[in-house]
Simulated assay, not measured.
Amino acid sequence: MKHYLNPQDTALVIIDMQNDFCHEEGASAKMGTGDIKAFQAAVPPINALIDQAREASVPVIFVMMTLEESTISEAWSNKFPGGSIVVKDTWGTEFYKLQPQKGDYIVEKHRFSAFIGTNLDLILRSLGRKSIVLTGVLTNVCVESTARDGFMMDYNITLVSDACAGSSPAAHQNTLDMINMVFGQTTDSASVADYWKQAMSISQ
Rank of each mutant, 00 (worst) to 15 (best):
N140Q: 06
N180F: 05
G136C: 01
F21H: 13
N140F: 10
E68T: 11
A147N: 06
N19S: 13
F151N: 02
D51W: 01
M17N: 05
A48Q: 11
P7N: 08
C142Y: 02
A11N: 14
N119P: 05
M152R: 14
N119M: 05
Y105F: 09
M152E: 12
L122W: 13
V63W: 04
G117K: 03
M31D: 14
I116R: 13
Q8I: 09
D149R: 05
N156Y: 03
V87Y: 12
R129C: 02
H110R: 00
T186Y: 00
P45L: 08
L127D: 13
Y195E: 11
M152V: 05
T10R: 03
A147M: 07
V60Y: 14
K109L: 02
V160E: 00
V143P: 00
F95T: 11
S201V: 06
A41W: 04
T158I: 03
T139Q: 14
V60T: 13
Q99M: 11
Q173K: 15
I50S: 01
E69G: 14
A165I: 07
V143W: 03
N156I: 00
Q18W: 08
M178L: 14
Q204P: 00
L159W: 03
Q52Y: 01
D20E: 13
T71N: 09
C22M: 10
L12M: 01
W91G: 00
G32Y: 01
V143T: 02
G103A: 05
Q198V: 02
K2P: 09
N78P: 09
V141N: 10
Y4M: 06
A170M: 10
N6C: 13
S189N: 07
V107C: 02
T146D: 07
Q173E: 12
M181R: 15
A193N: 06
V160T: 02
H23R: 13
Y155D: 01
T135D: 07
N174E: 08
P81H: 07
F115Q: 08
A193M: 04
K97D: 15
V86F: 15
K197N: 08
N47L: 03
L124M: 09
S126A: 06
T187L: 01
S201H: 09
V182D: 05
L138H: 12
T10G: 09
E108I: 13
T118L: 09
Q40K: 13
A41G: 02
F21G: 04
M65T: 15
D194G: 06
C164L: 01
V87F: 08
V137S: 00
I157D: 00
N174S: 12
N19Y: 14
R54H: 07
G82V: 08
S84R: 14
I132T: 10
Q101Y: 10
T71F: 08
A11V: 13
E108Y: 14
Y105H: 12
S161W: 00
S28V: 10
T33Q: 14
I50Q: 00
V133M: 01
D177R: 06
K197C: 04
F80T: 03
S191T: 08
S145G: 13
T175S: 05
A170H: 11
V137R: 01
E144A: 09
A147K: 11
K197S: 10
F115C: 12
L98E: 04
T135A: 02
T139N: 12
V63H: 07
Q185F: 07
R111N: 03
T187H: 01
S167W: 14
L159S: 01
E25H: 15
E25L: 14
L134F: 04
E24T: 10
S28I: 08
I157H: 00
A171E: 09
G184W: 14
E74V: 10
A199I: 03
V133P: 02
